[in-house]
Amino acid sequence: MANVKWAVDPTHSEVQFKVKHLMITTVTGYFQNFSVEAETENEQFSNPTNVVFTADIDSISTNNEQRDTHLKSADFFDAAQHNELRFVGTKYENVGGDDYKLHGDLTIRGNTKPATFNVEFGGIVVDPYGQTKAGFTVSGKISRKEFGLTWDAVTEAGSVVVSDDVKLQAEIQLVKQA
């Protein structure tokens, strides 16, 4: 039996990141254009392979045009040189019940590092249109500086303007491909 291919349903998925600002509040941003693909041995979403996530850097939105422009600049993502964030899964590990760890290689700004994300498997359902869908909540944390996003500023009082830790959160719905 051939592997089952899955692709993201972008209208029922979202990818966001959260960063502390001045260490007192959190700013949330989104990637508005992204892709997720995977293959499985069967429709039960057991042992997925070829898990690939990409996000278009130019699609970053924090609901502030000036901040978005700064994030796309060479100070941060350098979208002109590195227009895509990419994660390639290497291992999908059950850690109990519907909880998994997705291990892989994350590439941001040309820097590739191992990364692990928590995955909560929401299940599989056939929608009213006959499409088989699988749902996931993905979360994790990375150090932006490890990926070359090293811009920093300090307030007069010595507080950091932008934290190194970036929390990632995604709601992903995949559709079985015909």
Rank of each mutant, 00 (worst) to 15 (best):
T28Y: 02
E65T: 13
V162F: 01
G110I: 03
V162W: 01
Q16G: 14
V88M: 06
I108Y: 01
E84V: 02
N50K: 14
E120A: 13
L174Q: 04
V27S: 03
V161A: 11
T28H: 09
G97A: 05
E146C: 10
E37M: 11
Q16S: 15
K72I: 13
D165F: 00
L71S: 01
A74H: 11
N42E: 14
K141N: 14
W6T: 00
Q66Y: 08
G97Y: 03
L174S: 03
L106P: 00
A115Q: 04
T132R: 03
L174R: 09
V138H: 03
F77N: 10
G29L: 02
Q66V: 13
S139M: 03
N83W: 08
V88E: 06
G122K: 10
W151G: 05
V125E: 11
W151K: 12
A74Q: 12
I108D: 00
Q81T: 14
E156K: 13
A79Q: 08
A115S: 10
E39K: 10
K72R: 15
V154N: 13
D164G: 04
Y100C: 01
Y30D: 09
G89L: 09
Q131D: 13
T107D: 05
F136R: 08
A79N: 11
F87A: 01
K72E: 12
G110Y: 02
F34N: 01
A170S: 14
K20W: 00
K101P: 02
R109E: 01
V8H: 09
Y30V: 07
D75E: 11
V88S: 11
E146T: 05
L174W: 00
Y100G: 00
A80H: 07
A170W: 04
T26V: 14
R109F: 02
V119N: 00
A115Y: 00
S46N: 15
W151H: 12
G97L: 04
T62E: 03
S159E: 12
F147R: 01
Q173D: 05
A74L: 00
P114N: 06
T132K: 15
I60E: 02
L85F: 06
E171Y: 12
M23F: 02
S59M: 07
S13F: 05
G135E: 07
D68Y: 05
L102E: 06
E93R: 11
D56C: 05
V119M: 06
V36N: 03
P10W: 03
D127A: 12
F34I: 06
T155D: 13
K18Y: 03
S61E: 10
L168K: 07
T112V: 10
A134R: 07
E65A: 15
G97S: 14
Q131M: 13
S163Q: 09
F17W: 05
Q177M: 15
V138F: 01
E65L: 14
T132S: 12
V88Q: 11
P128C: 11
G29E: 04
H12S: 10
N63H: 13
G104M: 02
V15H: 05
T54S: 09
T26Y: 01
M23H: 01
T107N: 07
R86T: 12
Q177L: 14
N83L: 07
D105F: 10
P10Q: 11
P114E: 08
V88Y: 00
K167R: 14
T40Y: 09
A2W: 05
R109A: 13
E84N: 11
G97W: 06
Q173M: 09
D105H: 14
P48S: 05
G140M: 01
A79E: 08
V138T: 02
V125Y: 07
Q177D: 10
